[in-house]
């Protein structure tokens, strides 16, 4: 294995790369196409949710908050559904736990979630609206 080409072969390899197009992606302008199953920001469908709180129970980081009140007719009414995205680790267990089909809580391909303060990292029903289809 020991060769006496000193550093000639490695030099040729680096030289070869000089003439290739760089592989890095120029991020803000150019973005990678994400996989279909990419686990990004959540989406939540209030209309179909049955407030079973399976997602709340399974979340390892306890970052989902569901407030339910009972209407005079004896039905469950969802008062609030908040995801503390700053605590979320995007494991996707909540999506798996959802008993409905199609799932009420899904994960979108949105991943640029930086924000200026902690309160804005709490995503309520309005900000969680819109599943995969409505993504640009």
């Amino acid at each position: 294995m020991r060769t006496k080409s000193l550093i000639a072969k490695p030099m040729l390899i680096t030289l070869k790369h000089l003439f290739k197009k760089p592989v890095t992606v120029q991020y803000p302008e150019e973005k990678l196409t994400l996989a279909e199953r990419y686990r990004g920001m959540h989406a939540y469908d209030l209309e179909r949710c049955i407030a079973c709180s399976a997602c709340v129970r399974i979340c390892p980081n306890k970052c989902i908050e569901l407030q339910v009140s009972i209407t005079p007719e004896g039905k469950k009414k969802i008062e609030a559904y908040n995801i503390y995205i700053g605590r979320c680790m995007f494991c996707g267990l909540c999506v798996e736990a959802c008993p409905l089909k199609p799932k009420v809580i899904t994960m979108t391909q949105k991943y640029e979630l930086a924000d200026y303060d902690r309160p804005s990292l709490v995503y309520g029903i309005e900000r969680l609206r819109g599943g995969r289809e409505s993504e640009p």
Binding site: L34, A35, R37
Partner: peptide
């Protein structure tokens, strides 16, 4: 390595923490 991570992403939706 990135190519393999792309494969993982297509399978389980994440590049590093697969679950």
């Amino acid at each position: 390595r990135e190519l393999i991570l792309d494969l993982f992403e297509s399978v389980c939706g994440a590049r590093l923490t697969y679950n």
